[in-house]
């Protein structure tokens, strides 16, 4: 009789285990498609403010950019803090050929400058940190189109840069960008005091950028581009602070920055303002993203 009870108990346990097992097997295990995919948007836009960010455009996406800088805030209320001054404006179009390679063209009012650029992501930071940093390379060629009788080669300026960045958390990203600029033609200008202002052909700078998220669609940005080594007389390091606001396919950037130039080689070689002396200006960028392969 005792054996019979043991058998009944054993049978009950086996059946319970079996039923539980069946129930557990009824659904397939849920697995994430990939944990080694790239992190999303180290920076919200392909440019921090003026300096390029490691963020590239997705394949077949286009970014239409309007960049705008006003006069110096220190010009005072009579100039409405720089808003009355002539503005520099750049219209730009960038296109993602692949998720890692983009090309772009822009046109700035100053120097009637056309610039052609490309950016390639060599490494993408992954979510599982298998690759802890994002690395991109960038090249830009500027062509001044002012009617001044220059040959084509004298109109050219160049920039090459290596962009290294890491998204530390959803809210904090940092970027370091060694960059080299070259102008085919430079000037020696009398300064009116029996001396001259001498421009250099080459500049080397190390750009630094920081993004601090203030929410899922708002971020605070800072960009600082100190020149290292020899530099043109009277030039200063660029500093910019911006507020990024994202609304669907748009990213608006409101900023204060020192240089009125909107391409990196010019910001490095031609900025003569100093932020901490109060010489900065308002500006804004509007980025509109389009998908061109389908709607």
């Amino acid at each position: 009789m005792k054996d019979m009870k043991q058998l009944q108990f054993f049978t009950f346990v086996v059946l319970m285990v079996s039923v539980t097992h069946l129930s557990a097997q009824a659904q397939i295990d849920r697995k994430r498609a990939s944990t080694s995919s790239p992190v999303a948007e180290v920076f919200l836009t392909p440019s921090v403010v003026t300096m390029s960010s490691v963020t590239n455009l997705p394949r077949h996406n286009m970014n239409v950019t309007i960049m705008h800088t006003f006069g110096l805030v220190s010009d005072g209320v009579s100039e409405l803090f720089g808003l009355d001054a002539p503005a520099n404006i750049r219209f730009g179009f960038d296109y993602g050929i692949t998720d890692r390679l983009s090309v772009g063209v822009g046109r700035s009012r100053y120097d009637k400058l056309f610039d052609f650029r490309t950016k390639a992501n060599v490494l993408r930071q992954t979510r599982d940190d298998r690759i802890p940093v994002e690395i991109a390379v960038k090249a830009d060629v500027g062509i001044m189109t002012l009617k001044n009788g220059f040959d084509l080669t004298d109109r050219l300026s160049f920039l090459t840069a290596v962009l290294l960045a890491r998204k530390f958390t959803e809210s904090v990203s940092v970027q370091i960008t060694p960059m080299f600029s070259h102008f085919n033609s430079v000037f020696v200008i009398p300064d009116g005091q029996d001396d001259v202002i001498r421009e250099e052909n080459d500049h080397f700078a190390v750009g630094l950028a920081l993004r601090i998220g203030l929410g899922q669609r708002v971020a605070l940005l800072a960009e600082y581009i100190p020149v290292v080594g020899k530099r043109s007389d009277g030039t200063r390091d660029e500093l910019a602070v911006a507020l990024n606001m994202e609304t669907g396919g748009h990213v608006f950037q409101l900023f204060v920055k020192t240089s009125q130039w909107l391409t990196e080689q010019h910001v490095i070689a031609r900025n003569s303002e100093q932020f901490l002396s109060g010489d900065f200006r308002f500006g804004f960028n509007v980025n509109r993203f389009f998908g061109l392969d389908r709607q």
Binding site: R32, A33, S37, H60, E246, F289, F290, G291, Q295
Partner: peptide, 13 residues
Amino acid sequence: LDLETLETGIGKR
């Protein structure tokens, strides 16, 4: 479906 695999053609979207 892992919802992060959905793509609409625009990265921002």
